[in-house]
Amino acid sequence: MPPIPLPIPTSLSDLLLAMDLIGVFVFGLSGGTLAVRKNLDLFGVMVLSLAAALAGGVFRDLLIGAAPPASLRDDRYLLAALAAGFAAFLFHRPINRLGKPVMVLDAAGLGLFTVAGCSKALAYGLTPLPAALLGVMTACGGGAMRDLLVAEVPRVLREEIYAMASLLGAAVVIAGQHLGLPPVPVAVVGAAAVFALRVVSVLRGWSAPRAPGS
């Protein structure tokens, strides 16, 4: 029997939906922008945008028994991903002028998807550790799929702080629930913490620990 989701406050439910959709669009932009940089055609841009935007959420929903996945039940997910792909295809020049566009977009999507994924896992009755892992998988799955499709080592496996930033956001969400704090501010703080740590780690050159002597 699939797990039964726990009641979610309406305000938090609306916020998580908004975070999910904004995350889909942002990750879709990161995928589309990378596809343009790799000189892919329109079809390639749309494929990379869809993969980056939706893969993590699909994995999450299948693992917690929320089938069919939200992106196949709600047209807004697909429309947001497709809109992001077209936006990247048409407006990649002004996007690239922002400086490190893929990294910034990726960091924003990482924060949004971490919070949405972890919160949804908790709502389906998962304990904190599996919920944190689901949050990280939601956040990192799309980016990993995007990078693999263009034959790059996924960012989550590189030296940069990536999955660790996602874990920080999941920890904020779990701690907030444990302490009984208002869920909406906790979600916002969690997403902001992921974004800040990810961006600062890139700007400062921070990296995850490596094996001694490697």
Rank of each mutant, 00 (worst) to 15 (best):
R204V: 04
D74M: 07
L82I: 05
L133K: 04
R76V: 07
L42I: 12
L15P: 04
V115A: 00
V202E: 09
L63K: 09
V188H: 06
S207T: 10
G117F: 05
S201T: 11
L133Q: 06
P9E: 13
G190W: 14
L54V: 09
G111V: 08
G169S: 05
V189F: 11
R97T: 15
D20K: 03
S13T: 01
T138Y: 07
G169F: 04
L167C: 13
E160V: 06
R198K: 10
A165D: 00
L129E: 14
A51R: 12
R60D: 03
I174M: 09
L72N: 06
E160P: 03
A131Y: 05
K100S: 11
M145Q: 01
L179V: 04
S166W: 09
A144I: 04
A87G: 02
K100T: 06
T33F: 09
P9M: 11
V200S: 07
S13A: 13
V26C: 03
M1A: 09
G109R: 05
G44V: 07
A84W: 05
P2K: 02
P7Q: 13
D147M: 12
V104I: 13
V173N: 00
L134I: 15
L54Q: 06
D41T: 02
G117T: 04
A165I: 00
A151G: 03
I4V: 15
V26A: 07
S49H: 10
Y124N: 08
V150R: 06
P3D: 11
N96A: 15
V194M: 08
S30E: 11
G23R: 02
V156I: 12
K120I: 15
L21K: 07
Q177M: 11
